[in-house]
Amino acid sequence: MTDEPTVSDRLKSIGDRLRSVGVQARSKLGEARSRLVAAYHSRPVRQFRSNTLNVIGLVIVLTLILTAIFAPMLAPHDPEEQHLRDRLEGPSAEHPLGTDQLGQDVLSRLIFGARVSLKIGVAVVGISLAIGTAVGVTAGYAGGYVDEGLMRLVDVLLAFPGLLLALVIAGILGPSLTNIMIALAIVGWTSYARVVRGSVLSVKEEEYVKASQLMGTGRLRIVGRHVLPNVMGPVVVLATLDMATVILSTAGLSFLGLGAQPPTPEWGTMISEGRYYLRSAWWVVNFPGLAIMFAVLGFNLLGDGLRDVLDPREEESVQNKGL
């Protein structure tokens, strides 16, 4: 007999190990699955899906996200490929939604346009959220003159027609997507600052926060542990609704000639350039119009649904419809 394990032993041990990995994996999977099931049956989710509109909103938004991610696979043509001789052709098997004034495939441009719209939306909402949260927390926590000063700054921006600011910024930097994003973010962060500040003010008065303050916990810590989780709900709701506003504002700026640089497929530009074909080639203008409509509808429904679940206080955050 030798101490050397035989080949069969080895194989057996490998088999065992594999089996245990499998078992583990299966149990992990089961755990995840049961967690999912539990989550699916949990109160907030039950509440969310009890409303058909919420589910419709979620489906629209998910469709949009998946379209954006898999755009290159989904689009039948290159969105920037021109065929001048095949311009303004009606819907056909080759071009399900027809071609535009440059002979580009409208469907492919819509699909890639989802990417552009989401990119702008996420960037603007992200920047607004970051600035707004920082300002809101600072103002709410510091109080006094800091609060007063920051809130007056918010007032200045609210008193400013957002369009003007966007126009001027687009003017300084030249019309482009990036500049639209910067402009909309500069205009957009104020509502987050207000919501966050409100939440901070109310959380600050809670007993447990006062208690941890007395125990000498650092302010930043308190903000991280108690304030931010409490603010999450209303902020997520606001961000979702804001996505809709940003999509509409971008379309409005495009109409004014400050939109994406060609040949970027952007929905608002597609409508505003296609409006001359309203009578002769309806597909050029109306499909992008429908795309924007569904996207905005989706984010609004989802936002309303999330509000019911996350922010039951029914914030009266009146939305400014873009432009």
Binding site: Q82, L84, L102, A170, G171, G174, P175, G257, L258, Q261, P262, P263
Partner: peptide, 20 residues
């Protein structure tokens, strides 16, 4: 956009800048 496409097809890189 047509100019851009024409330039690209003869091997010249181009971009468009729309300006007010």
């Amino acid at each position: 956009q047509v100019l851009l496409d024409d330039f690209t097809s003869v091997g010249v890189e181009a971009e468009i800048q729309m300006a007010e």
